[in-house]
Amino acid sequence: MSIAAATALASALGFYLLLGVVFALYFIVFGVGRLVPAAKGSGIGFRLTIFWGAIILWPVLLFRLLKGPAELVPPRTWRRAHARIWMVLIPLVALGVMAALMLRPAAPLNDALPAGIMLEEASS
């Protein structure tokens, strides 16, 4: 990734989290009980626990606040979904592991120098 692309990615990530902090501050005061009435009147400790989640999951929460609470669906087990995930995960990981072993260098790579220093050395 070029430095410009990496900078754009890091900025986008920072912007997402900044919006998340602003939203989370609103959410832990006003939104918590709007989505789940049982959480109305809950204490500061609980609201601080929710704060971090609201920073990361703010788009889903905003959607829920605008569209209303999630529909109540009967709970179900997820056995079939688990089985499907493993059916995909096992061959994918097996392929990746085999490739990593087959193309592994005979001599160890040098990791003594921090990569940042190597980057600067390479570019100078």
């Binding site: 918590v32 989505l35 789940v36 989640g53 929460l61 829920r64 609470p69 999630a70 669906v73 709970p75």
Partner: peptide
């Protein structure tokens, strides 16, 4: 809380 807020699914 998150299960109730986001929906179980």
């Amino acid at each position: 809380y998150w299960q109730a807020a986001l929906g179980a699914s």
